[in-house]
Design a protein around this nucleic acid. Structure first.
Ligand code: SF4
Ligand code: SF4
Lengths: 153, 153
DNA sequence: CCCAATTCAGAGAATTTTGTCTTTGAAAAG
DNA sequence: CTTTTCAAAGACAAAATTCTCTGAATTGGG
């Protein structure tokens, strides 16, 4: 389970990463993505519709249709997906959430909280799907591995 | 809204902080806490029952009863409250949540994710209610301020 | 060109989880 | 006893997640 994101968002991130690792010019089918990543088919359908509307992925109907990234993985930040699926507001909150608080009237965890949040936002902001995909090549295939182990359970 | 915790947990943290700032030997009433912090009475009731069962707060019934911390604010970590209310499992998750992953088969954000999570867990682990309460004294009263501004809206 | 098969699009129903409220009971104080 | 206040079960509501079903675009084969 994700600590921070909704399931929609989690699935969106997974699917996008899946697409980033897909060979060029061969769109992936919804059915295939869903079973490989172990995501409910129709829920993923909805999430991908959102990503398509937001021009993060493109879809084609009919035979040899499917889903593919709309632009280079280098140009898609994790943040883009989060914003598309969960909305910006999902990142604005706080751990404690006192009624009125902020930099002017901070509670005593405010400093640590901001730094933790900084690390997370930085990650989402800076990491692209391309970088996500890198670091795997040469080593064992992360997703494939996941699938195998998931199937074993 | 809290990014990480359920509302129960958020309310639990707020209530605990409220109790920490309460003068010694004068338990606070559920009704009072709920209205001051703007938390639904009966929901807070449930949360405080949980904290009581977990011996983080103690309750007394009847006239001049109420709730108070079970031990010194110095000895209650934020983590204790989170675990009591949301359970340990609420802290075990990940942002991406691939089917099979971990330190052995990490995905490429794993490093950054662990560090972000480290900051958060560290905060929950190390900060006590006492430290939370400090940093406020002398300055404007954080909670009071919150209440005033909340009432204005 | 037309048809059948394939695959995404979308509305909306059903389910599950989470958050809130209602009601009754039990303990403590005076 | 009577009042005050917490304890607890469970009804109810709202939100998140999952499923059902119908429609529309595309392709390739007659
Ligand atoms: S002051 Fe900062 S850390 Fe504290 S509740 Fe407000 S936003 Fe959160
Ligand atoms: S490898 Fe680490 S960061 Fe990646 S999905 Fe798994 S737990 Fe999360």
């Amino acid at each position: 389970m994700s600590i921070i994101f909704s399931k929609s968002c989690e699935y969106g991130l997974q699917a996008a990463l899946y697409l980033a690792r897909q060979p060029k010019d061969s769109p992936a089918h919804l059915r295939e993505i869903a079973t490989d990543l172990n995501i409910p088919y129709h829920f993923l359908n909805k999430v991908l519709q959102t990503l398509t509307r937001d021009r993060i992925v493109v879809s084609r109907k009919g035979a040899n249709g499917g889903f593919a990234l709309a632009r280079s993985p280098k140009e898609i930040r994790l943040m883009d997906i989060v914003r598309a699926v969960d909305g910006q507001s999902s990142l604005d909150g706080c751990v404690l959430g006192f009624p009125a608080c902020g930099d002017e009237t901070p509670c005593p965890v405010h400093g640590q909280w901001k730094s933790a949040k900084g690390v997370i936002l930085d990650m989402l902001e800076k990491k692209t799907l391309a970088e996500l995909g890198k670091g795997l090549d040469g080593k064992l295939e992360f997703i494939a591995q996941s699938m195998i182990e998931a199937a074993e359970k």
